[in-house]
Write a protein that binds this DNA or RNA. Structure first.
Lengths: 345, 345
DNA sequence: CTTTTTTGTCCGCAAAGTCGC
DNA sequence: AGCGACTTTGCGGACAAAAAA
């Protein structure tokens, strides 16, 4: 019921075979680029395929090969700049590799996690990529692990787990941002981090700490935010209070774990008459669109999500072939703009 | 080859049938909730399904039903806030409706369009949603139209085409922004638009014009940008020149077609010592994350993408059922913040 | 004994694999 | 080497057979 019956069915191998005067088997061989087909025959088949506009039916193929040709991508529900860019990169790379991409976003509801996996399982995805770098989600895909390889973006490598990972080197990002500020002469560098359950967040914290220690500087104050500009603003308010109170802990520079929070920090400082970078330097993370036109233009750390996506697929393919993967995290890049400068005193 | 052979195959209907002491057909009936199965039998089957952890094989089902249970979503390659939010909304709604979502992004390469559609065709998607509201892409999905319904987000309804559309009412958005500025007492209101090939862009222009006309105000100047902060900055530079030149066309307010461009405009103005909103009021569009912490907080027009996604799927389902759709565009909402105020003089 | 459930058999779907010629 | 016949995959549909009413 439903469909009009007169829609002529798409041609099948059989139709192609008849038209080319061969058996459907031979068509299969041609399509799958198997050897042992005479060039002349191959040409005839190819011609017939072109004539009929034949397209292999992926359902049938999936049925018999037990491979769906699709990979599942799980994203956390929040469409922040990072995750959505990573998604795009993954999609591109996947399609280039000839895979379909099935998307599923994750609500916070844990029941949804189960249904999402069931979803993928049902669809017989050949691999899963998780773009949800929260520690709490580290194991979302584990139930599928016995069946298909899982690659998780942004999670730390876990040698004991079969989950493969890849990421931009967040710690290095944190180090680069911090080192840059140190290089400018800053000695009190605070950090506004993301939620510490996010790997990215805690790694950036680690990088910040490590670099301070390496330079022999005292620890700065850690202010924990939640990636939003609002939380950055709240941190900024605390920072400006420290400064106005001439606290010994008043920073001359702030490293924010993403650009949105950096924006909030700058806003809070500006509101109190503090100028960036004259009074306080600020470095962000991500290089979101528009960061170059914040006031002032934001010095930040950029991640190459295209590359991340590509590498992610690469690793997944390696896993599918049963090969090991070389895991070299991607180096992020510091983008110098106007929000950081040498301290005044 | 490839897989280790000892992985025990997933149970099939047949296994379930044996375990429940019925035929595989009965299992099918239970699974598909067909009538004419005795409750006792149904229970036995259900039990067997649970015991074996049986999951219907979607490839086989797709093969025989000729329905894949997936819908294809095409997005333009740019992961701006709008499109990616819409994508998320669509995905949520689709999965709630029991569909898989297959994602394909579009490069600018027209050849890619073809391969994308082939991709979807191959996968036998049951419907396609296009999130690529550029006029140039209006017909990307046409080749598929004879086969499956297509819903296009943000395109104007085309009664002659089988493509269904839904959108946030962009013209109304443009009107609301403009009316708000008029209400504040502005008489020279310029507009920084997106590329006019984008429906959203030209509709916002239309709304701006219409509202100016309705208020009996002269046309403002139209500056065409490309959605980026950089282009907004360029427009801002022209605007500040007008103001400093005391041109009769100097605006007291600017309506930017997205927040990023508004950011650029503000940046250009601030650079020249012009204060927003004291010297010039600015209204944006989208309410991107962080817009509330721009300096000043950006007055903007917000679109409900969740709702958009939901409605999109709704329409697609209606199309699938052969029902007509009521197309009521979604009303966007003006968010008042600090970037617009009454003009000084 | 007829009618109405309920259940099972056979076939098709569109491709791929094995073997044999 | 180059090709075709037969079988397999997991599931749903049409119809028929069996069971219940």
């Amino acid at each position: 019921m439903g469909r009009t019956k007169d829609e002529r069915r798409a041609p099948g191998m059989h139709d192609v075979a008849r038209r080319a005067g061969v058996s459907h088997q031979t068509v299969s061989r041609v399509v799958n680029e198997m050897p042992n087909v005479r060039p002349a025959t191959r040409a005839r088949v190819l011609q017939a395929i072109a004539d009929l506009g034949y397209r292999p039916n992926s359902a049938a193929r999936a049925l018999v090969t037990r491979r769906s040709g699709t990979i599942g991508v799980v994203t956390s529900g929040s469409m922040l700049w990072g995750p959505s860019s990573a998604l795009l990169g993954v999609e591109r790379a996947a399609r280039e590799a000839g895979y379909f991409v099935s998307l599923a976003s994750l609500g916070s509801d844990p029941a949804q996690v189960g249904s999402t996996l069931a979803h993928f399982h049902e669809q017989a995805v050949e691999g899963v990529i998780v773009i949800a770098p929260e520690a709490s989600l580290q194991h979302v895909a584990d139930p599928l692990l016995t069946e298909v390889p899982v690659v998780m973006i942004g999670a730390p490598p876990a040698p004991d787990s079969a989950v493969r990972t890849t990421s931009v080197d967040q710690e290095m990002g944190g180090r680069r941002a911090t080192r840059y500020l140190i290089g400018l002469g800053h000695k009190q560098i605070h950090h506004v981090s993301g939620p510490l359950e996010w790997f990215d967040a805690s790694l950036r914290v680690a990088g910040w700490r490590a670099e301070l220690a390496a330079a022999g500087l005292p620890d700065g104050t850690l202010l924990v935010g939640d990636w939003t500009a609002r939380s950055g603003y709240a941190a900024g308010v605390r920072i400006r209070e420290l400064i106005h109170g001439r606290s010994p802990q008043a920073p001359t520079a702030v490293f924010a774990a993403n650009d949105l929070m950096a924006l909030g920090v700058i806003h809070a400082l500006a509101e109190a008459g503090l100028s960036v970078p004259r009074d306080v330097s600020v470095v962000g993370f991500d290089d979101i669109p528009g960061a170059d036109y914040f006031t002032p233009g934001l010095t930040t750390v950029r991640q190459d999500f295209e590359e991340l996506g590509r590498r992610c697929i690469e690793i997944l393919l390696e896993a599918l072939r049963g090969e090991p993967s070389i895991v070299a995290p991607i180096a992020p890049q510091l983008i110098e703009r106007a929000s950081a400068a040498s301290p005044r005193d």
